[in-house]
Simulated assay, not measured.
Amino acid sequence: MDSTHADVAVVGGGIIGSCTAFYLARSGADVLVLDPAPGTGASAGNAGMLVPSQSVPFANPATVGAWLGALARRDSFVTLRRPLSPGLVPWIAGSLFEARPWRASRTTRLLYHLARKSLRLYEELTEAEGIDLQLRATGSLRVFRSTAAFRRQHRMVRTLAKLGAECELLGPRALREAEPQLHPDLAGAIGFPHDRSLDPARATLAIADAARAYGARFRAETVVGARRANGRVHSVVTDRGTVTADWFVIAAGAASSRVGRFFGARLPVRPGYGVSVTYPADRPLLRHSVMLEEAHIVINSGPRSVRLTTGMEFGGTAGGEPPAGAGQRLDAAARSFVPTLPSRDTAGAPWRGGRPMTPSGIPRVGRIGENVIAATGHGTLGMTLGPVTGTLVSSLVTR
């Protein structure tokens, strides 16, 4: 088997691993990224939104009802799927514990400030580094069908406004002017003008290419074990050889818990699976990225495609197919809000991928061993928090 050495070995080549590799390589480190299919997974199939406005964690008081609904209804936003792993029940209990109002408020504050810093870093990557991320200053809208649901979100608006978020309330008439393609009988929306959007697959590959330009190497290999001695990890074993390094970074997304066990670490990360469907388009369908609140559907309308994303499914297997009929149900629900959605016949096959979820919603970024760093658990904010995570990991290594 081949043997390779690097200053830093990064396990995972999605948006977090690519950003980590970029900032480490730019600082002068010799970086090797190991991933069976770099740039794919959740980093390619997600909604492609950079959204400080979505900093309210999944573990919040409103989610408790969704958990109960997952057990009682098949059409709930949060669902459970067999097989259920033994660690899922304590993970859910931890999430409910973290959903207490004061803890959720603390997490929101932390995530919001990290997200704002990360957006500034995205702009620096575009302006100072010349990386073609094709950032779109679309802003985002949270759209509501019912007046009651619209009013319930006013508390969230006040929370984000106290943190410095700029947002506005749009009534039915203002919403029709802002988004003529939406159904005319909607109650209103909350607008966040500073949110951004992009093509997540293209952006991940662009950052990986920028890391390569600074000398980082990416290899399509699967880590199957690690070797430790005297409290340190000295190498990882892949399906193609052995890699020794001074530092190891676990940035394996939803697989981080399994990978962490190779390093003797227990990471409280569980996959929360989502489904997306992408339609080709010759122009943007919507002016903003849109969250359909009651349907829990995100629509990101780019220059050449429209992507719908939904769901938070726990359990099942990493390689599992989307639930039967998921694409048709997603299309029908979205079309009730956006009647001019492209024809269902043009859509690609439904995609299913796992988001790395922690009980609190706070990513696990930091040392978990003498020379091992975790960079995982970003939940639905992986794209948003990619650059700020990369800078944090780089500072841990270089200092």
Rank of each mutant, 00 (worst) to 15 (best):
Met1Trp: 06
Thr4Gln: 08
His5Ala: 14
Ala6Glu: 01
Val10Asp: 01
Ser18Phe: 07
Thr20His: 09
Leu24Gly: 00
Asp30Ile: 03
Gly41Pro: 00
Gly41Ser: 02
Gly45Val: 13
Ala47Cys: 09
Met49Ala: 07
Leu50Pro: 07
Ser55Leu: 07
Val56Gln: 09
Pro61Ala: 11
Trp67Val: 09
Leu71Ser: 06
Ala72Gly: 05
Arg73Pro: 04
Asp75Arg: 08
Ser76Glu: 04
Ser76Ala: 14
Phe77Leu: 02
Thr79Asn: 14
Arg81Asn: 02
Leu88His: 02
Trp91Ala: 08
Glu98Asn: 12
Glu98His: 15
Trp102Ala: 15
Trp102Arg: 12
Ser105Cys: 13
Arg106Met: 13
Thr108Arg: 14
Glu123Gly: 10
Ala128Asn: 12
Gln134Asp: 14
Leu135Arg: 01
Gly139Gln: 01
Arg145Cys: 11
Ser146Arg: 14
Thr147Glu: 15
Ala148Val: 15
Arg151Thr: 14
Arg155Leu: 14
Arg155Ile: 14
Arg155Ala: 15
Val157Phe: 08
Leu160Thr: 07
Lys162Gly: 15
Leu163Cys: 09
Leu175Gln: 02
Leu175Lys: 00
Arg176Thr: 13
Ala178Val: 15
Glu179Pro: 00
Glu179Ala: 00
Pro184Arg: 09
Pro184Cys: 10
Arg196Thr: 11
Pro200Ile: 04
Ala201Asp: 05
Ala203Arg: 00
Asp209Ile: 09
Ala211Phe: 00
Ala211Ile: 01
Tyr214Gly: 05
Gly215Leu: 12
Arg217Ile: 08
Arg219Trp: 01
Ala220Ile: 09
Glu221Pro: 10
Glu221Trp: 11
Val224Ile: 13
Val224Thr: 11
Gly225Ile: 12
Ala226Trp: 02
Arg227Asn: 07
Ala229Gln: 14
Arg232Met: 01
Asp239Val: 06
Gly241Trp: 04
Thr244His: 11
Thr244Gly: 12
Ala245Pro: 00
Ala245Ile: 08
Asp246Gly: 15
Trp247Thr: 07
Trp247Gln: 05
Ala251Gln: 02
Ala252His: 01
Ala252Thr: 03
Gly253Met: 00
Arg258Trp: 01
Arg261Lys: 12
Ala265Tyr: 02
Val269Asp: 04
Val269His: 04
Ser276Thr: 13
Tyr279Met: 02
Tyr279Ser: 01
Pro284Gly: 08
Ser289Met: 02
Leu292Gly: 03
Leu292Asn: 03
Glu294Cys: 09
Val298Lys: 05
Asn300Trp: 03
Gly302Gln: 10
Gly302Ala: 10
Gly302His: 02
Pro303Glu: 10
Leu308Trp: 03
Leu308Val: 10
Thr309Arg: 01
Gly311Tyr: 07
Gly311Pro: 06
Pro323Met: 07
Ala324Leu: 15
Ala324Asn: 09
Leu330Asp: 02
Ala332Lys: 13
Arg335Lys: 05
Phe337Gly: 07
Thr340Arg: 03
Pro342Asn: 03
Ala347Pro: 10
Gly348Met: 13
Gly348Ala: 13
Ala349Gly: 05
Arg352Gly: 03
Gly353Ala: 15
Gly353Arg: 05
Gly354Tyr: 00
Gly361Pro: 05
Ile362Arg: 14
Val365Gly: 04
Val365Pro: 08
Gly366Ser: 06
Gly369Trp: 04
Gly369Val: 07
Ala375Ser: 05
Thr376Gly: 05
Leu381Ser: 10
Thr384Trp: 07
Gly386Gln: 12
Val388Pro: 00
Ser394Leu: 10
Ser394Arg: 11
Ser395Glu: 11
Val397Ile: 12
Thr398Lys: 11
